[in-house]
């Protein structure tokens, strides 16, 4: 029997394994973002939001929904994918994946696909939770789903890299906690960049997260801090950079093979 050109059974095996791993802890996975989102709405939506006017013609409560989704999506995507590849490295079961007839592309497709699936579901759950607090109108629903999937996949790739490079569980937390979360808070998750003083606006545009949140917010309200095409290009650029790094890792066996 000759090996297939594309190991669909192998991809499906990894994907199903990873999804069932996520399903084992589904309630913890869903409860955390739902509770966090609810708290954000209590604090920012009701307590603070009620004292604020509209932002770019949108009520403050509705305005922060895309940013809140992104905030969770970034960290969850990174952590899911990082854990997905780090755990078999940690337990030693990675030997089976490395010795199987699966290509680098197939391995990434399966692991990142599974992690991105969970992230997209989480994003939709947060959206549903948010809709309980504020009326939400999505101007471009298909574009919203496309951005959700693309950003999830991009940050899952980023997480995959972090998982491969990490030597312990603590290292996996460093980038999401110390880099991504601050950049998200400073990237317009809770405000419009136009609300900043001109000098800080210039600084803000060096933050790549601004472009991701802006693009996602455009799908809801038809407007963002930067043109949607710029957001799309920035997101795709980040996606392909991550893809390039992953390809290099598999080509060289960095942190995977001796």
């Amino acid at each position: 029997m000759s090996a297939p050109r594309f190991n669909a059974h192998g991809v499906w095996a990894i994907y199903r394994f990873e999804v069932s791993r996520a399903l084992r802890t589904i309630w913890q996975s869903l409860a955390t973002p739902v509770i966090t989102t609810a708290l954000y709405f209590v604090v920012f939506g009701s307590a603070i939001g009620s004292r604020m006017g509209e932002v770019d013609g949108v009520s403050y409560g509705a305005f922060i929904v895309p940013g809140l989704i992104m905030l969770t999506l970034f960290t969850e995507s990174i952590f899911n994918a990082a854990f997905g590849i780090y755990f078999p490295k940690f337990t030693g079961t990675i030997y089976e994946v490395l010795s199987a007839p699966v290509s680098s592309f197939e391995i990434v497709l399966a692991y990142v696909g599974a992690a991105a699936t969970k992230s997209v579901v989480l994003g939709l759950v947060i959206l549903a939770t948010a809709s309980l607090f504020v009326p939400i109108h999505i101007a471009h629903p298909l574009a919203m789903i496309a951005f959700l999937v693309l950003i999830s996949a991009t940050f899952c790739l980023f997480g995959f890299i972090i998982g491969i490079c990490s030597n312990n569980f603590e290292q996996m937390q460093v980038v999401p906690m110390l880099v991504v979360t601050p950049l998200t808070f400073l990237g317009g998750a809770f405000y419009s960049i136009s609300m900043l003083p001109p000098a800080w606006q210039t600084v803000a545009y060096f933050n790549p997260v601004v472009y991701l949140i802006s693009g996602f917010r455009w799908t809801f309200f038809g407007q963002g801090d930067v043109p949607v095409v710029t957001s799309l290009v920035a997101t795709l650029a980040f996606f392909f950079i991550c893809l390039g790094v992953v390809a290099w890792i598999f080509r060289t066996g960095y942190r995977l093979k001796n």
Partner: peptide
């Protein structure tokens, strides 16, 4: 390959882990 170390996903069932291995190697169920 049967490796020296007993590496396995401790929370998986015997059936699932064996089924996973077969799929990983490109074999139909």
């Amino acid at each position: 390959l049967v490796p020296q170390e007993l590496t396995s996903d401790r929370w998986e069932t015997v059936w699932n882990t064996v089924r996973f291995s077969r799929g990983l190697y490109g074999r139909a169920p």
